[in-house]
């Protein structure tokens, strides 16, 4: 459970009168016990795992280490690929300088993934 302020900080989603919203997309709050919002007196809490379930977002937890990981929505990943627009990313080089794929627009890119194992 996180506060509405922490919800924005960790996910970008914002709790509004229409539900939780991000970039113009709103997910209405389900009624009753299915709601991802818990109100206790003056306090409001958002159940991130329940929200993730509604969003079809994978959640994996290690409760003993107090870690929850919220993954990418598979449909979001698939939609990006089907659009054929190469998904953007930003990664560091060996010196720690970051580079983004979008910086190479206007040139052909041969994107090669390798590993040293």
């Amino acid at each position: 459970m996180v506060t509405p302020e922490d919800l924005v900080r960790v996910s970008g989603w914002e709790l509004t009168a229409e539900g939780v919203c991000l970039e113009g997309l709103c997910v209405p709050e389900p009624p009753g016990e299915d709601s991802f919002v818990a109100r206790r007196g003056d306090e409001t809490w958002v159940n991130l795992s329940r929200l993730a379930s509604l969003l079809d977002q994978p959640v994996v937890a290690s409760p003993e280490h107090r870690v929850w990981f919220f993954g990418d929505r598979p449909q979001g990943l698939a939609d990006r690929l089907v659009s054929l627009t190469a998904p953007d990313f930003t990664l560091p080089d060996l010196d720690g300088r970051t580079h983004s794929l979008r910086e190479h627009r206007g040139r052909k890119v041969f994107l090669l993934a390798w590993a040293s194992w």
Binding site: D72, L77, R80, L81, L84, T85, A86, P87, F89, L91, L101, R102, H104, R105, G106, R107, K108, V109, F110, L111, L112, A113, W114, A115
Partner: peptide
């Protein structure tokens, strides 16, 4: 392994060709 997640890669070496407009 962010690129592998975004492009659904399962092995290396794996490459994707992307044109000047950013299209695969």
């Amino acid at each position: 392994h962010r690129v592998a997640t975004l492009y659904d890669m399962v092995n290396v070496p794996t490459a994707v060709w992307i044109d000047e407009a950013g299209r695969i």
